[in-house]
Amino acid sequence: MDFYKELENTDFDDLFDRLVAYASAKLKSVDIRTMDGKEPCDLVADLFEKVLTNVRKAENASCTLKEFLFGCLRSDIDAFFHRKKPLLVTANEGEVITNPVTEAPKQSAATKEHYINQLKGVGADEEEISVFNIWAEGITKPCDVGTELDLSSSTIYKIQRRLLKHQEDIRKKSKAVV
């Protein structure tokens, strides 16, 4: 990565929004709004500060600055989930819930087919199921998924947005059962 050139060409407003949205989605997946008392925007600001002051060295990374920051954020949040494994407490009511993200694989019996049924159960349409099937094959970049389904990236983003909502519905439903 040409780190300094990337810094000069980065749209920080856009990148900040994307990282905050991603952090929010990850925290929301386990029904929490903060991590170690920090809101998503604080987590993102902390990460930027570490990278820009060379505490976390991005210069030698082979990926882009955006990929590097997303990778770091994902790893930070996942590390937090694993530290708090197996239980997380919701910020709102102090209610204890299981953490679907960090659950050991053998604890979950859900297969691809089972998950597709769950998606259908919360109203996912055929387009969403097609996208999910492509993910299951290991193709996860929206542009690649679009190529596979002969759809534009913009259409894939919209389908994926609906899928995110339905995944959230599944989590809420499982929580209600617990």
Binding site: Y22, T140, C143, V145, Y157
Partner: peptide
Amino acid sequence: DAEMHFFMQA
């Protein structure tokens, strides 16, 4: 991975 790519590229 798909979730991360979505927020990176949407």
